[in-house]
Nucleic acid binder design. Structure first.
Ligand SMILES: [Mn+2]
Ligand SMILES: [Mn+2]
Ligand SMILES: [Zn+2]
Ligand SMILES: [Zn+2]
Lengths: 151, 151
DNA sequence: TTTTAGAATTAGAATGATTCTAATTGCATT
DNA sequence: AATGCAATTAGAATCATTCTAATTCTAAAA
């Protein structure tokens, strides 16, 4: 983060570890690639520690600092999203479609829910004219299907 | 928090510092009352430190620990809400009506926005049948009226 | 092929917000 | 006045994250 600010980043020209994904400009080093892959194959919104554990099976020597670095680069590049549901650990999500988060207060699971096609959320709130909306964070808390069933 | 768990709380029987507000069961000690009053007369969603500063003008010796204690009791009693917009400091809000938070990314201000009367948010997301919703946290990020105007 | 300069990675220290601990103080009933 | 909790406090501890200061990589330059 400090280092990358010192100068314009050298344009990646190398091979397998420098895939330009989705038009983004991140250098996809092996670690960043692994962190991304872990996240892309997860639907449970893991924390940095969860990701560390999962990446360790492929790269046993990766450090927590590197996981945080990778997550920051991937987030800045727009390849993943940081999700803040409660105080404490952030969670991460590789689903880039517009969606909201459902958090089960019984089992703790976090899942994605997608809006109906015609959903235009901004019009439901009386925001003053002139307000510009860039992003919405919507978290729904409750009891999931499974937890409701086994009650 | 620890102390209050040891036993059923003695029912308040005293006078001015024990007002039962809105059917809640908190003892409204002078400090809790001041913290609540500061919040009730604020629309800017102050942090614990902001609240400490404001309460200090009336109670110069109040401690940060007490502010946190008061905020926790008031939150548990349902008299105020804790608001988590980004990582870092929590904010607090005494508006108990259903509302969402607008956060201006330019000036940092946080304000309330109220939904249209016919707004039924849950139906817009395809939550699995059987899901029970208890609460929604909706944060809208963007540029406020004033900041948009002065650009 | 060696050099070199910037970027990536690392362990551990530092930070910041909150929570916990262990007194001490205050109040309401006895 | 004595008793017994609950409230309050300062400071320590905790937890997630960010920063620091090396060290290692890598890709282009020489
Ligand atoms: Mn998600
Ligand atoms: Mn509010
Ligand atoms: Zn569940
Ligand atoms: Zn603004």
């Amino acid at each position: 983060m400090n280092a990358s600010a010192t100068r314009a980043p050298a344009k990646p020209t190398g091979l397998d570890c420098r895939l330009a994904v989705l038009g983004s400009d991140v250098r996809l080093t092996p670690h960043r690639r692994e962190v991304f892959d872990v996240l892309a194959s997860s639907t449970d919104h893991p924390t940095a520690y969860d990701i560390l554990d999962r990446v360790k099976s492929r790269s046993p020597h990766i450090s927590l600092a590197t996981v945080y670095n990778c997550l920051e680069h991937l987030t800045t590049a727009g390849l993943i999203k940081q999700v803040q549901l409660e105080r404490g650990q952030s969670r991460y999500c590789a689903n880039l479609h517009e969606h909201v988060h459902f958090h089960c207060e019984t089992c703790g699971k976090v899942s994605d829910a997608h809006p109906a096609a015609d959903f235009d959320p901004a019009k439901f709130w009386n925001l003053p004219k002139g307000t510009k909306v860039t992003r919405m964070d919507i978290a729904i808390h409750g009891t999931c299907e499974a937890c409701t069933a086994k009650h």
